[in-house]
Amino acid sequence: MAVTSTSQPRPPAAVWRRPLSALASGGAPLISFAFVLGIWTIVSLLKIVPETIFPSPWSVWFATIEMWQNGTMPNDLRVSLGRAAIGFAIGASLGVLLGLMTGRVAIVRTLLNPFLNLLRPIPAIALVPVAIVWFGIGEGSKYFVVSYTVFLTVWFNTHHGMQYVPGTYLRAARSLGASKLREFVTVIIPAAAPHIFAGIRLGVALAFLSLIAAELSGASSGLGFRLQEARQYIRTDRMFSLLIILGILGATVDYVVHRIGQKLVHWEQGQ
């Protein structure tokens, strides 16, 4: 009955949502990148837009080489990744810890949840001025903004996961004689783990987002600072280079975290 159909088997929809995970298996996304690069090349060759406004692929490439050779790029990468990592580590561990507490301890939940939920809609960038007043333009303000943003997301997801621990797991654990502590460690935490990991993955993405926000205003190094600096000299080629690197960086880290999550919460993948 499908004789007339010429459609080929289509890749699962998830491929389009997670381009880099498919790229790793040598998939269709390469075609997408090549396609966009092709259009970009054509637009540049036709000189529809001035080079200073919309740089060509090759000038972006040369700007990258230039920044790499004069040492700013390796240094900015190191500085930014370090800030993101430290901020993320602080925020994620606090988030998981407090999420476990608000998830299980009624008094902590009553005291903190309404307040934390009020904080969640405040965008990270709005915190930058406060962070600068409190911590100056050094590392402190970056750690603060990143860890704060990561913390709220990880806390929220962890808390949420704790709410959805199936009651029968707890009943089963108790009727098998598990102590409160063992029930917590070997039943409640694993049951909430898929949510906790979803929060951590979101947290990683937000760590980059909030870091760049913090570096754009009030920093003397880092990828965000370099973007701002490029604006002052109207170096769109450098901006594009930095933006692409941010994209690749974010997607790679996301992919790695996703794979680690799949390994750690392996039971969620099973049918």
Binding site: T168, Y169, R171, A172, R174, S175, G177, T186, P190, A193
Partner: peptide, 19 residues
């Protein structure tokens, strides 16, 4: 007064720990 391992329970939905 509460659950204990003196009283075992088998649930319809098995309640095995998937991890």
């Amino acid at each position: 007064t509460g659950p204990s391992n003196d009283v075992g329970v088998i649930f319809q939905q098995y309640a095995l720990f998937p991890w």
